[in-house]
Every structure is written in structure tokens, then in C-alpha cells.
Amino acid sequence: MKLMSWNCQGLGRALTVRNLRDLVMKFHPSIIFLMETKMRSSRAMRLRRRSGFQHDLYVEPLGLSGGLAVWWKENISLTVLFKSKNIIHVEIASTSLKIPKFVTFVYGPLKERDRWIVWDLLRSLVAGEQET
């Protein structure tokens, strides 16, 4: 199983879409995490389907910034345990995995004061304190 993470800085441009397709064709990821999509989920779903991913999870952008997406293939079982504007925490199961794995996708905030909030949230996720 391959996992790919990319800060795409907006999915609306033709060059970005072409680069995404090239990366998917080259590396054949089973799961892809996209940061800074700057795109509503309704538009991103079309791109996800054209890219060969059957499932999706979105955190909508705030205004013209942010936005997270996780896309995964049919042979993956992904359960969302927590999501916010900066973090998506999931449990992943697959026939290629002996036991389920926990994965936390993080899009770090630009401002230093906001980073402490994300770090505290990550610590609480590790400690099992956070609810969905």
C-alpha cells in the first residue's frame, strides 16, 4: 500500500490537475492526502473520480484558504476517528496489512501560536482523549 501526501495549493488550476494525474500515474498510491485544496468537496469529487479513487473525505476550505482531502481506493477500509481544519486522524485496514494502522494527516498552521493548538490536539489524539 502506498500513501501520498501533497500540498497542492489549490486544485482548480489546469497545471495542478495535470501534475496530480502525473503523480498518481507514476506512483500508484492507494491513499492520497491533499492539503490546501481551496476547493469545495462537490468540485473535488469529480477530480477524485477521474483520478481513479473510489472514496473520499473532505474538510471544506475556510474562504479562499485551506481545505483537506483524503482519497482512497476500493481495497482500503478507512475509518475517520477525528477531523478538523488541520488534522484528519483515521484507522486504515486492508488485506495487505496484518493489523489496522492509525494514520494522522496534518496540515500545519502558518502562525506559530496556532501550531501549539495543533500540537496539543495531536498529543490528545495519541493519548486517546479526543472524540469524533
Rank of each mutant, 00 (worst) to 15 (best):
L97A: 09
T95M: 11
A44T: 01
P61D: 08
K2P: 02
F102D: 10
P61I: 05
L57V: 08
H28M: 12
L57G: 09
V103M: 15
L81Y: 02
I99P: 03
N19K: 11
E36M: 02
M4R: 08
Q130E: 15
W119C: 10
M1Q: 01
P109V: 12
L64Q: 13
G10T: 01
L68R: 07
M25T: 10
K26P: 03
I87Q: 06
V17Q: 11
V70M: 10
G128L: 07
V70I: 15
S84G: 08
L64H: 14
L121A: 09
E36G: 02
S77P: 00
H28A: 09
I87G: 04
Q54Y: 13
R48Q: 11
G67P: 05
L125R: 08
P109T: 12
S51I: 03
F27T: 12
G108Y: 07
L64A: 13
K73V: 02
R50G: 01
F53A: 00
I99Q: 15
F82L: 03
D114S: 13
Y107K: 06
K111W: 12
L23Q: 13
L121G: 09
R21L: 13
I117R: 12
M35N: 09
M39C: 02
R113N: 15
T37A: 00
T95D: 13
V70H: 05
L20S: 05
L78P: 06
S124K: 15
L34Q: 04
S30K: 07
H55E: 13
A93Y: 05
K38R: 12
V70G: 04
W71M: 02
R115I: 09
L23I: 11
L47T: 04
E60K: 07
A93L: 06
V17I: 14
I88M: 07
G52H: 00
I99Y: 15
K26R: 14
R113L: 13
W119Y: 14
G52K: 04
G52R: 00
V118P: 02
S65C: 13
K73T: 04
K101E: 14
W116E: 15
